[in-house]
């Protein structure tokens, strides 16, 4: 039980894909102009991650070693297309905003990375929890980054206007440069917190 819990929280902090391992960064930068987009992208990726981890783990004894990578890619691409179609049908506005970055979940290194490094070697339950942890770790990272950018760039959060009418916002935060700079500063903050944790532990 304790081990399963560890699988789950691993992705949330210690091996957070965005802030600690730094993989799958394209959508992190691209869709985080508004907090709601961050959540949408994060949850879509989480869904793909959990489903593909589960299936890869289920099939780990059936798939021959040599063709495992193409097999994983087919599994992942299937779930990505399902998400793409469902979002287009039921969440058309969000689908429009995320656009290109939904099919690009296929090449998100987190998904293939977890399939190869974890799901292909572990039981289904652990793999699902690992996928869920990684996905939610990715989601909160996206949401925090998007919330900061939305607040500074448009003066609102989750679409709620906070800044007074006519107040000057830092427009560049919604533009590409703001994405890079905000992520850099957030990463530095995470490093500071981690360093402090380490010092306290020793």
């Amino acid at each position: 039980m304790a081990r399963l819990w560890k699988n789950f929280v691993n992705g949330l902090w210690n091996e957070n894909p965005t802030f600690r391992i730094m993989i799958g960064l394209c959508p992190v930068l691209a869709v985080t102009t508004e907090a709601i987009n961050g959540i949408g992208m994060g949850l879509a990726t989480t869904f793909v991650l959990v489903c593909s981890s589960a299936l890869v783990s289920l099939l780990r004894k059936v798939i021959p070693e040599k063709v495992r990578i193409p097999a994983y890619i087919v599994v992942i691409a299937t779930f990505v297309t399902i998400v793409d179609l469902f979002m287009n049908a039921y969440l058309p506005d969000l689908h429009q905003v995320l656009g290109l970055f939904i099919p690009l979940i296929v090449v998100n290194c987190i998904v293939l990375g977890r399939a190869e490094a974890f799901a292909s070697k572990n039981s289904v339950v652990s793999s699902i929890l690992d996928g869920l942890g990684m996905g939610l770790g990715f989601t909160w990272a996206l949401t925090v980054l998007a919330a900061v950018r939305e607040l500074l760039g448009s003066g609102s959060i989750f679409g709620w206007k906070l800044a007074a009418d006519g107040a000057t916002t830092i427009g560049v935060m919604s533009l590409p440069p703001g994405a890079f700079i905000t992520l850099g500063i957030l990463m530095a903050l995470m490093n500071m917190i981690a360093a402090r944790q380490k010092r306290r532990a020793s």
Partner: peptide, 10 residues
């Protein structure tokens, strides 16, 4: 090997 991959793809 090929069979497994084809089944998955199908």
């Amino acid at each position: 090997m090929v069979v497994v991959l084809s089944v998955i793809a199908m």
